[in-house]
């Protein structure tokens, strides 16, 4: 077992292997150019594409988040508005109901008073009229009776009979 080949550059190197230099350069550069075309280029392309995709997805997510936030705010506002509006409507209706009840009651009351007054007035009128009629009747009766008395000078019996007859007649008349 010999260790000659352990010496640096040992193993049959006779001077510089110039062709190896060219071979190395040739293979390496060829490899680099080929790989750039078929492997690194497409790979870098897809990585950039992915980066862009992710960036745009993040942007889109951010956008839609803001959009939904905005919509949520809007809905919340609308809901609040609707609630206050409903409250206002109910309040209004209650107020209106109260008002119309008051009005109805007042109207009914005045109407009742008016009816009652007119009834009283009518009764009074009727009474007056009745009294007036009675009075007229009495007067005419009295006149009739008086005329009968004056027409005929009769005895007390006749007189009485006459008056009774008159009164009876008057009773019949009435």
């Amino acid at each position: 077992m010999s260790f000659d080949y352990l010496v640096l550059g040992a193993g049959g190197h006779d001077g510089l292997n110039t062709l190896d230099i060219f071979a190395t350069l040739f293979f390496f550069i060829l490899l680099m150019v080929l790989l750039k075309k078929v492997a690194w280029g497409p790979l870098m392309g897809i990585m950039t594409q992915r980066e862009e995709l992710i960036a745009s997805e993040i942007a889109a997510a951010e956008n839609s988040r803001q959009e939904s936030q905005r919509l949520l705010e809007e809905q919340r506002d609308l809901l609040k508005e609707a609630r206050t509006e409903a409250l206002a409507i109910v309040e209004n209706a209650k107020k209106q109901g109260d008002a119309s009840r008051e009005e109805i009651i007042t109207t009914a009351r005045t109407e009742a008073i008016r009816l009652k007054e007119s009834a009283i007035r009518e009764i009074d009128t009727e009474k007056e009229r009745a009294i007036a009629a009675v009075r007229e009747e009495v007067v005419s009766l009295s006149v009739l009776a008086a005329s009968k008395v004056l027409e005929k000078e009769v005895s007390e019996e006749d007189n009485r009979a006459l008056i009774e007859a008159t009164i009876a007649k008057a009773g019949e008349v009435n």
Partner: peptide, 19 residues
């Protein structure tokens, strides 16, 4: 264990087939 290299000459330059 002595290793030689498969050298060759081309256009006056030395090359190593193994490399």
């Amino acid at each position: 264990m002595e290793h030689a290299n498969p050298t060759f000459e081309f256009l006056g330059m030395t090359g190593n087939w193994s490399n």
